[in-house]
């Protein structure tokens, strides 16, 4: 008797889970579907679910732009900025989590407050600095900007992950004569690795999707995929199918990357919850 309500509940939650996933995934599915339609089919009302698929949009995009140079820039800039951010954030979070002072809380909040400023507010000063340092339209310039943008979030996340590591373990390490470096690399990092990995993934995704600075600070040499998509959005004429194809191409690498690292991500997000 007891098994029945349990089973029913499981069916319900499974159905709900699938429904939520379906709703979340539907726009992406529709975008990919639209990318194989012709422009007239793309705006047809009622929308067509079955049609003769065409690769026309992809070949137009291939003719007009060099997808791989944009994709390479996206990979280099987002991965580079994430690694750079981790490089700064791990020591910072280590200090704040295990050796807090009375200013630690304030510092953390202050770091977060920089995220509250609308980016357009500092566009002109940053543009001028970049112009004077010849960083406009360079990958290094964009990497630096993304590192700085993501640093507060990365520090916060790693700080909370470090907070979950019991101090006693570190102390035990120190008792055994571990140096600070050994303590961080051999005790702390392995324990917090899932958390760091998921933080890194989040930072990569945030950099991947960032469109304001990439549009404003690059022209051609360092332009990532966000500029690539922007070049297919048009106010004159109907290019929905083409835009869908461009967007599908732009999200493909990060989507594949996300699938591959799904387990890490889920482990990282629930890390600390299960202890």
């Amino acid at each position: 008797m007891a098994a029945k309500p349990k089973l029913r509940r499981r069916i319900w939650t499974t159905a709900l889970g699938w429904l939520a996933a379906g709703i979340l995934f539907f726009p992406i599915f529709w975008m990919v579907l639209t990318s194989f339609k012709t422009e007239v089919e793309a705006i047809a009302i009622p929308p067509k679910l079955f049609f003769q698929p065409t690769l026309e949009n992809y070949s137009t995009i291939n003719d007009r732009t060099d997808y791989f140079s944009f994709a390479l820039n996206s990979v280099l800039i987002s991965v580079g900025s994430t690694l750079l951010a981790l490089l700064f954030a791990v020591p910072a979070a280590y200090a704040m989590a295990f050796f807090p002072t009375k200013r630690t809380k304030g510092t953390l909040l202050w770091m977060l407050s920089t995220k509250m400023l609308p980016p357009v507010g500092v566009l002109v000063p940053i543009y001028l600095i970049f112009r004077n340092l010849s960083l406009l339209d360079t990958r290094i310039g964009l990497t630096i900007i993304y590192t700085l943008i993501n640093l507060p979030i990365v520090v916060w996340m790693i700080y909370t992950f470090f907070k979950d590591v019991p101090k006693d373990i570190l102390e035990a390490g120190r008792m055994d004569g571990a140096s600070t470096r050994q303590e961080v690399f051999q005790v702390l990092l392995p324990l917090a690795l899932p958390g760091i990995a998921s933080t890194g993934l989040l930072a990569i995704i945030l950099s991947w999707n960032e469109a304001f600075w990439s549009l404003n600070l690059t022209t051609t040499n360092a332009a990532p995929l966000t500029t690539f998509i922007a070049s297919f959005s048009s106010p004159q004429g109907l290019f929905w199918a083409q835009l869908s194809a461009a967007s599908s191409l732009a999200i493909a690498p990060i989507l594949i990357f996300g699938w591959l690292s799904q387990r890490q991500l889920v482990r990282g997000l629930t890390f600390g919850a299960v202890k």
Binding site: L215, T227, S233, P235
Partner: peptide, 8 residues
């Protein structure tokens, strides 16, 4: 080429 939507 830098091709963008009008307002951008």
């Amino acid at each position: 080429w830098v091709v963008l939507e009008e307002n951008v």
